[in-house]
Design a protein around this nucleic acid. Sequence first.
DNA 1: AGCACGCCGACT
DNA 2: GTCGGCGTGCTC
Length: 727
Amino acid sequence: MSAVVAVFAPLDKPLSYEVPAALREQVAPGVRVRVPLGNRRALGVILELASAGVEGLRPVEEVLDLQPLLSSPMLAFLRRAAAYYHHPLGEVLRAALPAGLTAVKTRVNIVTERFYRAACAVQDPPGARQREILAWLRGREEVPLSEISRHFPAPHAVLKRLVELNLLSVREGERRRDPFLDQPVPVDVRPVLGVDQQQALAALLDALAAGRFAQFLLHGVTGSGKTEIYLHAIAAVLEQGRQALVLVPEIALTPQLVARFRTRFQAACARVAVLHSALSEGERYDAWRAIARGEVQIVIGARSAVFAPLPDLGIVVVDEEHESGYKQSEGWRYHARDLALLRAQGSAAVVVLGSATPALTTFYRTQAGDTGYLSLDARVLGRPLPEVELVDLGGRRLSGALAPELMEALSATLERKEQALLLLNRRGFAPYLLCRECGATFRCPNCEITLTYYQSRRRLRCHYCDYVQRPPERCSGCGGTSIEPEGAGTERLEEELAVAFPVARIARMDRDTTSRKGAHQSLVDGMEQGAIDILIGTQMVAKGHDFPRVTLVGVIGADSSLNFPDFRSAERTFALLTQVAGRAGRGTLQGRVLIQTYAPTHHALACAARHDYLGFYEQEIAFRRELGYPPFGYLINLVLAGNQPLQVERCAAELAEELSRKAGEVEILGPAPCPLARLRGKTRYQILLKAAARAPLHRLLGVVDSRRRKLPRTLSLAVDVDPLDML
DNA sequence: AGCACGCCGACT
DNA sequence: GTCGGCGTGCTC
């Protein structure tokens, strides 16, 4: 008997192993095995078994699972995914399984831990620390050791003594800690559905009742009540005894969404599992097993949650489906929304893609009829959309980052004691330092970009590789000393506003101010409690939260994303502007949006100002059609990177040459240096493959696969199927 | 990925 | 004369 095994290694094909007689009872497709590979061992998953013996196979050494870890629909899904993305199956399986199940060095998963509970005794112990911990424990139920450790350093000896004194009881229990449980549970409000919502829901319920694969776009502006529809549809899925998967672009920004799900389904006793990056290896494993056993009805998570092993998946919700966070940007470059569709096909599940600004490709599918279109026209409670004005900066010279119009609007907002939100999609004080004498800028030695200047810390920093240096006293080129920051980032804007509005309470929200745990939440709280008057931030401020007292939104660098060297730059700009504009006037107050731009006639800006998705779509789709870009063509980007510039260039040229010979109907663009031609010390070249259909592209990738192994090992080749950006 | 094999520079 | 640099090939 032999087994075909996908080994967790970047091999281009599965390997066959002999199944020893002693292991015959234990093997099955979907179980993990330990196998010899070269002169080491590796883990892998059995894909299939064959009774016919083959000579000269090495034996399976150990079977690691009693039951298949991956069900057969799940395996089928992952095989299709591997084929689609031209990624080694073993690596795909590794990405789909919780870390810890794929490493050879088998770590014992922590499944139990000690729980302590204060006894009913009233007398107090002698030690001060003992009293302290006991008092704390008396205020709560059963507490796991890990949580006690978080509040008290090295509590073990103290706890042991308290147990000896019979003041505490201990129990060994299964570990289940979930940071999202700390969220206050909101009251479950069940708003009455509007007409649009009822129609959308009815369509979803019909599809669910049919029990077949179907996909829908739920198109509605922020605040139009998409979440309520998800909740209703999921309730119907649970009724059928099936499970639901909810994907969100970034789980860290959605604690209130999670809380809402928890509250709603508490009564139905449905278990909601949240998969997020803060889970330890053990917790992740526990959650994964519970999901696979069918004990969890609803899974909420970021892109990797698309691999959650729900046994009978009935619905997948992809919230904010246009978000780029769904695309994995290194290693296996999958897109969770596209994988969700692939998976749902195999599970006869319904997919709901929700967005206020759907990806162009998604909206196109609704026009073509492949995807059902459900539209929520009005904001709930009929709140009007904010008035948006474009402030044309053409030919004007500003004294600071803000135009007078925006300054005036800000002071009016402050006078009314309302809040303002300013979007400037650039961190730091200034995007670069400039020598006034010779025009030199200061660049990262590893990456081909200018170093961002941080005034607060007096440092220059690279946003790509984190290289840091002190700002130079004099220019290395001409020796000049008049070196000045050019352009403005959030740090500078904050400073400028502090001068202009000395009494205003100003806060900044970007990756630099929110890296500390809980920092993001405290800024959100500050806004909600009215402790902040002006919130400055990068695109982070456009996402996630409702601030009911925000009546003014200002956008400062609206054009910077428009000038990205990428065919999707208009789409991204439109989505960001629409999203941030939606932040104004969420409460009962009328909102106003001012967008500073040099390109007021560009359709991304003009349409965003009119809240006109359809108008934007019409213009953008015409451009895509003309150039054969998605959805009218399919792209695969090949990125070659290496330390030696000449070698990278030469190999890229050779690869492109060979591809051209076999191109057929595939268009080969390049090789050309990537827009980020150097990144973390590596020189990068790209070759873009473009075709009107997928099949010839995939055929051509066969050439890449066979050539991959012949490349010098000092070079890396990344295959990006359906690239989102090409930097 | 990991690991060995194999062919060219600076050391005891 | 070796030790070891990393380019190259292979893993059932």
